[in-house]
Amino acid sequence: MDERALSAYLTSNFGEKIQVTSAAQAFPGMSRETWLINITRGGRNDGVVVRMDPPGGGLVPTPLKFEYDVFTLLNRTSVPVAQVYWFDEAPDISDGRPLFVRAMVDGVTYPPGLQDDTDAAAERRKRVVLEYIEKISIVHRLDWKTHGFDQIMPAPASPEAAARSELQRWTQLWRDTRSDPFPVMTEALYWLAEHAPPRAMAVSLCKGQTGIGEEIWRDDKIVALSDWELAHIGDPLNDLAQSQGMLNMWDREKILRHYEACTGFSVPRENMAFFTVLGLFISALVLNQGLPGFNAGVNGRLPRATLGLGKVKIYEHMLGAMIDMDLEEAAAFVHANRPNPYHNKKVSGS
């Protein structure tokens, strides 16, 4: 980003003199661009984050304004999130791409050394996952109706409808947006419909993308929950099932018991299994969203092709193998065959 133009833009919106001292894009920023901007204002150092759609649009099939609205509502709750400042639909600074600006929270998205093969790292992983459970529990216990979240996102009519309405939402999105016909995916969606759990133990605000790579950590504590673009109201176990390897960081059963103690909800293993498999399908859908922009030459980032073509094919093959399995077997298959990229040192660099 042009730092002079950005200084002028921030000065105009904050109504005080802002000097940008550095601007760097957070890695990998596949779904959307996140820019970390160091500034001086009123003679002191500060920072803001600019979140914007990439060229060709984001991978996640919700508008950026939706995520901004979620942040705005969260700022009025006890959930730890960065303060959001404003949304801009089509500013010149981003060549007309939507953006919003929020406060920068000091911390990291990958706690360094977390995946080391040492006793100390194993102990840290336990601390980190318990911290994650405590923070995500605040989200899941939140009274979403009082805070108005059902004004900006649909809510299932009942706990009995939670799994099916979530599946229907993604099924419709898939039919509307997929790059090619995928009969294996079609069959897998019917398999999921047949295996949808009958009831959610609670209907909660869900974050949608959680875990390492999605939150801001400092001293092994979550200081801000970030990335709310897939937020929705539904079965909270969806978040746990898709927590990007968090449940592998320590004894899985003990982690789930800690969650039950923090939230007061029980954790039906059937619901966990269903959302684990649904998560694989959702990932395929989201990654596939990057192909139109790539094919049209609007966004030539090569990972859009490795993800949109290659990973989608991998997930299609996994779903194709699962349609002859029962639910528990299919969930175990996902756990065994879907490593979290954020836990790969080649990617995280730490």
Binding site: M30, P303, T306, K311, I314, P341
Partner: peptide, 15 residues
């Protein structure tokens, strides 16, 4: 039939 065109190439780090 198509498996060998995608695996193991796309099984590694995605980005």
């Amino acid at each position: 039939r198509e498996r060998d065109m995608y695996m193991p190439e796309f099984s590694g780090p995605p980005f």
